[in-house]
Design a protein around this nucleic acid. Sequence first.
RNA 1: GGUCUCGUGGCCGAGUGGCUAGGCUGAGCUCUGCAAAAGCUCCUACAGCGGUUCGAAUCCGCUCGAGACCUCCA
Length: 501
Amino acid sequence: MNLSEQYPIHLSNSLSGKKEKFEPLVPGFVGMYVCGPTVYNYVHLGNTRTFLTFDTVSRYFRFLGYKVRYVRNITDVGHLESDADEGEDKIGKKARLEELEPMEIVKRYTEDFHNVMRIFNILPPSIEPSATGHIVEQINITKKLIDLGLAYETNGSVYFDVKKYNQSHHYGILSGRNIDELMESGRDLDSQDEKREKVDFALWKKASPAHIMRWPSPWGEGFPGWHIECTVMSTKYLGETFDIHGGGMDLKFPHHECEIAQATGANGKTPVRYWLHSNMLTVNGQKMSKSLGNSFLPSELFTGNHPMLERGYTPMTVRFFMLQSHYSSTLDFSNEALGAAEKGYKKLANSLKLIKSIEHPGNATPDKELNEALQTLVADCYKNMSDDFNTAKTLAVLFEMSSRINDMKSGNVSLNKIEPAVFESFKKAYIGFMEDVLGLQEETSSDDKLLDGTIRVLIELRKKARTDKNFALSDKIRDDLKAIGVQLKDGKDGEITYTIE
RNA sequence: GGUCUCGUGGCCGAGUGGCUAGGCUGAGCUCUGCAAAAGCUCCUACAGCGGUUCGAAUCCGCUCGAGACCUCCA
């Protein structure tokens, strides 16, 4: 029995609103699409949480032995500005503000995005398609929808006919809306007069004369609507039906709802089997967003250079902090919580370093209870992750394992009592869940060999002073190092280790 | 206004019909030349009011409070 059978994954499907057992379309394979960033600005921490969530999801699938194709797009065109901007596209607007070519903007912020992902140890997706690279496909599906009678052209723009679609399907199936209520409520947009109904949404927008980003189409020069790129890119690389579609909660409506309508309308089948939505990062209980002005840039977080921050926090501290809550809950961001996370993370990271250096001596005289307890911990890691990717529960188990690792180091627990095979699986699980599944690496604040060598010289001097009972000198070495941020720790075996604060 | 979610101990945050979540903080003990680290112990909560049940933080209803979506947003 392989791991995926032993620990079947159950996940919360937003489509059904229930936790369901995950059954891949093709055994052993997972196709997953996640809505990526719009690269017209720096990514903030709230964005990062979503990508971290799905990073962990894809990591865990792979850890269980699935072959994963993870597609995450780059939106470099298409998002319409609000009514004030008369349907102008975000990238184009920003470009003129800064007097740059749109592609310059796209490149700058894409690189920033990749950089942030790297810093947080968020692995790259298998495919990272861009909207501008799929204009032809977007035009084709728009044509198809017109031919099927599900879309119509007005003044060089093309809109999806939601009412028509709703006659044979259910528009609102994901977000629980009903079309009559939608048609009554909501604001009037500028393009209202072009649409038959206010619920209709653009598949293709005519470009105004001033509009920079434009492509020729059967309806004149223009650019694709917001929702169509995801439909095109997901189905192109994953098929007309695929396993998982993820994204932030705020995309559920209208974005994801429209994706379902477009894809179902065009291909005649339900595009996605499991919808996963990650919840928002909040600040003082309010959603973190650029428009509210309460967002944090990753760089501000690392340096502490932000009015709301008392000091800086490392990327792994932030990663740990986010993993301590479930992805489907909101998570509130505060100095206190971050400070607590820092200590917690360091504890786990210390044990990670420790366990790597511990080897089993062989020849066990096993203690049955102990061995069973250790095996239970390993199994619990899998069980908790398989239960809707519950990273918070998994971390609780890792803390327990961390204590046992410290026991092994201190001698509280004798390695002789642990069966070699149990020890190996325990060690492998701790390292595996920390590094491969949760992506929590050791954060060497300095891998500077010169510094390390220098500290070791001082440690040797201190050892000598202690053997000579020259505590005045040994304490001075320790205290002076402490003052500049190097904490020495005396082990029971006489070995001295250090951490840089 | 419509749709929906949430309200857990000093703080953060899991859980969701009966069994200790966990982290941080605080107190104590052990180890230690003293520290630090580590191990152990303690502080035991589920907004309020009703109801269902042998039993509810967990299900149902109401009240209060907070938030999200309905418009670009992860």
